[in-house]
Measured scan of single mutants.
Amino acid sequence: AVSDRLIGRKGVVMEAISPQNSGLVKVDGETWRATSGTVLDVGEEVSVKAIEGVKLVVEKLE
């Protein structure tokens, strides 16, 4: 699937994400809805860990 190529890629949070609410991330110039187990603020760099349906699962870049 086209989304599989995104796993491991870096992105930037465009709309804040929390465990309760999905947000938006931009990866390779495309905007995706994303979820995370932690709070991520706009502008934070993330990496794509998995894909669930049409949402990316991301975590903060260390």
Rank of each mutant, 00 (worst) to 15 (best):
D4N: 08
K60C: 04
Q20I: 15
M14L: 11
V27D: 00
L56D: 01
V13E: 01
V2E: 15
V2L: 13
G8M: 03
P19W: 07
S47W: 11
V42Y: 06
K10G: 07
K55G: 12
M14Y: 12
K26V: 10
G29L: 08
V13N: 00
G23M: 03
T35I: 12
G53E: 05
L56R: 00
R5F: 06
G29R: 09
V58M: 03
D4F: 04
K60E: 04
V54M: 10
L61P: 05
L6W: 06
E45Y: 14
T31D: 14
R5I: 07
M14P: 00
K55E: 11
R33I: 10
I7C: 04
V48N: 01
E44D: 12
G8K: 04
G29F: 07
V48I: 12
T38S: 14
A34Y: 03
V27Q: 01
K55A: 10
I17G: 02
G11W: 01
L6T: 03
Q20N: 09
V12H: 08
E15W: 09
S36V: 01
R9T: 09
A34R: 00
V42M: 08
T31C: 05
T35N: 09
S47N: 13
R9L: 13
D41C: 06
L61C: 05
V58F: 01
V57N: 04
G8F: 03
K55N: 13
A34D: 00
V27F: 03
G53M: 04
A34I: 01
A16E: 09
L61I: 11
S18G: 08
I51W: 07
E44W: 12
S18P: 04
I7H: 03
E15S: 08
V12G: 02
S36C: 05
S22A: 11
I51A: 05
V25M: 02
R9W: 09
I17L: 05
A50W: 07
W32N: 02
V54I: 12
V54K: 14
G29Q: 08
Q20M: 10
S18W: 09
V12T: 09
Q20Y: 10
S3C: 05
G37H: 15
S22C: 05
L40W: 03
G23Y: 06
G11N: 01
S22V: 12
S3I: 11
V42P: 09
E45K: 09
E30D: 11
A1D: 13
V27A: 03
K49W: 07
M14D: 05
V48R: 00
L6H: 04
G23R: 00
S47C: 05
D4Q: 07
A50L: 04
G29C: 07
E30L: 13
I51M: 07
A16C: 06
V58N: 00
G37I: 09
G8D: 04
L24T: 08
K26P: 01
L40E: 02
I7W: 03
G37S: 09
A34K: 00
V27I: 13
V2F: 04
L61N: 11
L40I: 15
E30Y: 13
A16Q: 15
W32A: 03
L24S: 11
A16Y: 10
V48D: 00
V27R: 00
V27M: 05
K55V: 14
R9Q: 12
R5H: 13
G43A: 06
L6Y: 05
D41V: 11
G11Y: 01
S22W: 09
E30Q: 15
E15I: 14
G37P: 11
E52Q: 15
K49T: 11
V48E: 01
E52P: 02
E45A: 11
V12A: 06
R33M: 08
G37D: 12
L56W: 02
A16H: 13
V25P: 00
K60G: 07
E62H: 15
G43N: 11
L24A: 12
W32D: 01
M14Q: 08
L6K: 03
M14R: 06
V13W: 01
V39D: 08
I17A: 02
L40S: 02
V54P: 11
S47G: 07
S47L: 15
E15Y: 09
E15V: 12
K60H: 07
G43H: 08
S3N: 12
G8L: 03
L24Y: 10
V13C: 04
S3Y: 06
A34Q: 01
E44L: 10
I51E: 02
T38A: 15
G43Q: 07
N21F: 14
V27T: 03
V46C: 05
